[in-house]
């Protein structure tokens, strides 16, 4: 059993230790807000926080989070009140929405470290892929969230 904190609750994952964290989150604990995109850490749809850092959960084994704190989109806030979530809603950022939970988690990790990011900071940190091409609204929403 792999024990870790998931969105503020202590959980035990009874899966193969090599199972990607993404699948433990989705299938063992039923938190399906975190998405599978590419499976090779390239697209960012599976981004979650581990001890505050953005991590691509498709490429980290669940054994690597033993004793650590994992936060998914479901745990970012209790009532969608995180500044990034509010900015996302205000600007209607998503189109299809599939990549957006990963985008939001990456943006939240960025703002936790750099409260007023420049465009270049966003370019460097947010490498998640959006097939709908919502990048312009994502950038605007990050700047808006930074002001909250």
């Amino acid at each position: 059993m792999i024990a870790f904190d998931l969105n503020g609750k202590q959980v035990n994952a009874g899966v193969d230790p090599e199972t990607p964290l993404l699948w433990a989150i989705r299938e063992e604990f039923g938190l399906t807000g975190t998405k599978y995109g590419c499976g090779i850490a390239a697209c960012g749809a599976c981004t979650v926080h581990v001890d505050g850092d953005a991590v691509r959960s498709c490429s980290i084994p669940v054994s690597a989070v033993q004793g650590r704190k994992v936060v998914t989109i479901e745990g970012l806030s209790k009532d969608r009140s995180h500044p990034v979530q509010m900015a996302w809603i205000a600007r209607q950022v998503p189109q299809c929405g599939y990549c957006q939970s990963g985008m939001i988690m990456a943006a939240a990790a960025l703002l936790a470290r750099i409260s007023r990011p420049a465009d270049s900071d966003i370019d460097d940190a947010i490498t998640n892929i959006c097939r709908c091409g919502t990048y312009k609204r994502i950038r605007e929403a990050i700047h808006a969230a930074a002001k909250r």
Partner: peptide, 26 residues
Amino acid sequence: GPDDRGVVALRCRTCHQADNQQASGV
């Protein structure tokens, strides 16, 4: 990045862990 370990929200450890990952090839 400033410490050779990537930038904020895209650190090396965002993907690279302590071992090779067979599922993703990372």
